[in-house]
Design a protein around this nucleic acid. Structure first.
Lengths: 235, 235
DNA sequence: AGAACAACGACAGCTTTTCGACAGCTCCCT
DNA sequence: AGGGAGCTGTCGAAAAGCTGTCGTTGTTCT
């Protein structure tokens, strides 16, 4: 029984009329091992959906031809039950979307952070793939993060993290024991287009350390001149 | 989305309006067994991309005609998903470039060290060639270097190397059991244009030895009047 | 033995990292 | 709408760590 025998790749359809954004999402997804295709208009989306049979769809609400809702309606009319994650502008129709995200759908406001989008996609996928979806729990040494309850504990001690701290920690844990550069962390955890060229990452790491290492040995390590890792301290 | 199987040599397109730099990169790549072509302008880059179908592109941001971003846009518009590694001046547009690593592309600041560029290219290539990207681990005798975790161990013992030491060791290990001259090491590991006419290489090797050979038999051997090798037992 | 080459200790300058203090913002409660 | 609490990012100073130069000592070759 070969270890490498994995289930089929997740199939993702990204619909956004802004090619850079669509590509960004598709690329990140591919690096996660998914199969991704992009569509830049509603019509193209419908066509690709029929051909590609995605497992999940990322759908921008603002499209040149048909709008996001229109696409959704026609998808559903065609009998497709694919879960959809919507993208909307900050102020736009966020309220209406919220109402429409029945079932397993979800939505995210632009500009978003790629890691957050990926996390939502994973969640939606997990929920929609049949019954008895198992919890998603990340572990590194005695540090545990439950992605459903957002509970983080070091040993028995429950930690209270701010949203940013949580995201940075999740990214570090998900990639552990790979060393990540500050640029990678910034690019994945902060929303695209974030200007702050300062030492935010260092700062959040510093705050995280104070909370994490309060109990026990240090888990987040600095790799000088390169970046950060989270892992059990090696011998 | 076709997944290009790479059985052939890696195909690299280098785009830089400074011919010496472009040639430098192309030469090193060819020496690694890759197929490399150079372009000195944006237009030429687009033309060559269409003809040559590179697996990866090194793209200077400052070009006479179209700038780097323009080239990227037109590549993407043409439906090419080739990964790109950007080159930028130290202070220049580094900010605007940041944000590109999130897609999986990467960037490097000029002047750079050739080995570092090659390492990044290999990483990007590895990440972008499908899922299940295997770890890259170098081994020489009981010395092991994991390029993802940046972990280096001699036997069980974990070593802590500084960035320079790490780079020199990687280069030695990657070329092992070939003997490298000090000039080669200097030229590959230090940024081009490095002034140090001194004995830096000897010094770093010396420091490496102290850390490596602390346990076990010497691995880095001096080839008097020529250079250094790393390998099991010499002569 | 003498010359060339190599090893490496010590030091000073410099770069990177850490983190306290603070101010703007947002969100929530009343 | 006002007040307050908590979150985020900026700034700057201090600490920590890295690198290259110099110069002395050791080694090898002729």
């Amino acid at each position: 029984m070969p270890q490498y025998e994995r289930v089929e790749k997740v199939r993702l359809l990204v619909v956004d009329d802004d090619p850079p954004i669509a590509d960004l999402v598709a690329t990140v997804a591919r690096y996660e091992g998914w199969a991704a295709v992009t569509a830049n208009s509603g019509e193209e989306a419908l066509r690709l959906s029929a051909e590609f049979h995605p497992d999940i769809v990322v759908l921008d609400l603002m499209l040149p031809d048909l709008d996001g809702f229109g696409v959704l309606d026609r998808l559903r009319a065609a009998g497709t039950m694919v879960p959809v994650v919507f993208l909307t502008a900050r102020d736009g129709v966020a309220d209406r979307v919220a109402g429409l995200t029945r079932g397993g759908d979800d939505y995210l406001v632009k500009p978003f952070a790629v890691e957050e989008l990926m996390a939502r996609l994973r969640t939606v996928l997990r929920r929609s793939s049949g019954p008895g979806f198992q919890r998603s729990v990340l572990r590194v040494a005695d540090l545990m993060m439950d992605e459903d309850t957002r509970e983080v504990r070091r040993g028995d001690k429950l930690l209270t993290l701010t949203p940013t701290e949580y995201e940075v920690l999740r990214y570090l844990m998900r990639k552990s024991p790979t060393v990540l550069t500050k640029a990678q962390i910034l690019d994945h955890v902060w929303e695209y287009g974030f200007g702050g060229r300062s030492n935010v990452v260092e700062l959040v790491v510093s705050r995280l350390r104070r909370k994490l290492d309060d109990t026990g040995t240090p888990l987040i390590h600095t790799v000088r001149g390169f970046g950060y890792v989270i892992r059990q301290a090696a011998e």
